[in-house]
Design a protein around this nucleic acid. Sequence first.
RNA 1: GCCGGGAUGGCGGAAUCGGUAGACGCAGCGGAUUCAAAAUCCGCCGCUGGUAACAGUGUGGGGGUUCGAGUCCCCCUCCCGGCACCA
Length: 883
Amino acid sequence: MQEKYLPSDIERAAQTKWAASQIYRASDDSDRPGYYCLSMFPYPSGKLHMGHVRNYTIGDVLARYHALRGFNVLQPMGWDAFGLPAENAAIANNVPPAAWTYANIDHMRTQLQALGFAIDWSRELATCKPDYYRWEQWLFTRLFEKGVIYKKMASVNWDPVDATVLANEQVIDGRGWRSGALVEKRDIPMYFFRITQYADELLSGLDKLPGWPERVKTMQANWIGKSVGVRFAFPYQLPPPSPLEGEGRGEGGEVENGQLWVFTTRADTIMGVTFCAVAAEHPLAARAAADNPALAAFIAECKQGSVAEADMATMEKKGMDTGFEVTHPLTGEHVPVWVGNYVLMSYGEGAVMAVPAHDERDFGFAQKYGLPINQVIDLPPSPTGGGGAGGEGAFSTDAWQEWYGDKIRGRCVNSGKYDGLGYDAAVDAIAADLEKLGLGEKKIQFRLRDWGISRQRYWGCPIPIVHCESCGDVPVPAEQLPVVLPEDVVPDGSGNPLNRRADFVHCACPRCGGAARRETDTMDTFVESSWYYARYACPDFAGGMLDARADQWLPVDQYIGGIEHAILHLLYARFFHKLMRDEGLLASDEPFANLLTQGMVVADTYYREAADGKKTWFNPADVELRDGVAILKTDGAPVIVGGTEKMSKSKNNGVDPQALIDAYGADTARLFTLFAAPPEQSLEWSDAGVEGAHRFLKRLWKLAYEHVQGGASTAFAGGELPDAAKTLRRQLHQTIQKVGDDIERRKQFNTAIAAVMELMNALGRLEGTDAVTRSVRQEVLEAAVTMLAPMVPHIAEALHAELRPGAAMAWPVVDESALVQDEIELMLQVNGKLRGQIRVATTAGRTAIETIALASEAAQKYLEGRPPKKVVVVPGRLVNIVP
RNA sequence: GCCGGGAUGGCGGAAUCGGUAGACGCAGCGGAUUCAAAAUCCGCCGCUGGUAACAGUGUGGGGGUUCGAGUCCCCCUCCCGGCACCA
């Protein structure tokens, strides 16, 4: 055995051995129970970053642990290969996105292999390959024919200078990232998945996912946002039609029949409506603007800026009167209609009733524009003389108070026949009255919107539709799939280059054979990542999207990925699973049985700002801190310190793990990322501590080396032990218990590692070279090496081979008899404060413990002869004496 | 703005069901070894007072429940993630 721990040698040897024996190939027909362990596949951005290392190390620990416990483990890997960064790289370096992507994949695959993950590489897939995306296109055409996919207009960010659609990320302070031009919203036709049709099932299905973190389920439930409310209309008569015809959009309000429809969850406040607000895109707004230039200008202003909801929600709330009035359906009063920049056309009806007295946003809006605020809800008087007019302050139009919006305690006032009713009764009565008038009904509304998947970009999966003058939108027939994306294209940032590829665009209509145009939009890359987990079960199946092996492996037993995917990716994947189920491709309802959401790896960001506001981001590795000032190493000049953010390409704050692997080896890199923080917590990157992880491995190697040098030994198998060895054995079996629990149930690896470290510290202190002591040392080392094998597989492989040549590794079993203790120490508290310890027999009962505690020196001191008021005994823990 | 999280020594973190706060590791300090250094080994290490025993205090801030609160409840501050075209 080598005296020194040489990571590069043992890692190369172990990886060579694993590759040759193909031991990580999952068997499609095995007697052993299957365990499908999946980590979110990476976007091939160029190099692995620490987030990847963390994600795949966590997955590998769970995969290897289950393999050691006898499962037939499937841990696949692939590439989320379509996406925006490839186009950005193409613009910057004049390389085709395809070539860039394939080169990145090759490099990152090498890096993953160097980390020694137990991956079944025979199932590798890349979403940009036609043999993958052809099935996505196939499913698209099926869903299109079923009506699950439909076409409608939707807003995008339009850069008028580059003449291109921008991603939200590419809009910085309302301007295009490259051109600096003011971005405007533009309506274009897009294809949508009818995810709202599955809203109820996506919501109720969360209850069937006990293996998901509560916070993720809460976020998804809130995102779906089921609310029960009332949809109703304000009738109106338009003023004489202007010569310019308003451009109706079909969605939302209906100009023709003279009814402005709104949705509200607060129908109980309907008598307090003092105005209505419509989105800038609402047909009524367009109609009003036709002969009102000021309003037209305001609407144009509303159309500036990005479509991102965060921007919409944080901007200053502005509005303008349309001059139109609608009729309140219950009071018959005239209600003015305003255009509000905060009303979203894509949510509900694109119009809202405004009750300034009882909605905080409406309140602020009414105050700003001097609109009336009419109180219609009050709190019932409380016994303490409270109530709206009492304890919590009287209603006042000067300042908003929390209770104005209280739908639990509030009662209707100033509301005619509804006075005195609480929320439920009022909503019921009002909905019934509206229904009698034919002007409304109760309705369930979801916040969730249909999923628009059209992207005006080149590097994505082509949407398999052909546009024909006579036949309309025709899906490409299955036998003509895949619609192959040409891979020799270099985008230049001005629009979608596919539009300029005549060979791609011009085609024959599959229905009539006439000349037609191929759709040049590509799909949202979330589509590819919504079903890859299923394709891993049968990546080689050429006869269809999935075969029977999908049901054999699915649902995924353990899915691991970043918390940033808590909503979108995970919701889309759940939705897609149901789509595939309803196509008869799968039997299960949910894709992922257990979910581990790893915290982000975050790092500081550094940048400089050019005169035109453009920011250049610098990697933390190129920045150093001198006297508290961040300095760029290359030029010695200061840089601005940004926030601590998730490592990303756009902020250039990714830490390259390669240097770590080169200097210390893969095992140290793995051990350190696991030890630095529990998986669910975010990990703030710092180099400190890497040394410690490496030192531990060296120490482990040394302990094993010294033991092996003493000659062959076999693990302790029973008999009498000296006290020191007996104590160590007890610690060993406690550790086995803890490590198993930490990995399997708690999924917290830092504490598992700490427990083994403690065990090794204790082993180092054990003296004696007699055979029985050596046998305990052998037992401890074998078990420790095996328990560490999921985390640091290379060194474990090497050490196990030295400790038990030729034997297979098997997870250690807890010896209950080793855990038995005669005496334990209890903490002694007086009035909740720690004042001493007492030793009692493990078998001692409550009264015996109490007697010992009261007789103790500490108790005597604080009781001063008085009898205690109370004695609390917590078995196995402590005694608290209340004097 | 809305939704979801988080905050514990100089630092990363531990405390699993309300029961010893600071495990394990990093950094630091002292010592051993060495011609010297690296590596390694041993010891100390929340803060305040005290030579010490010990006492007080301490888990972002304020209040509460409890024999007992880092953990539960209410309010607040700051930080992070998501917000539908980054993935």
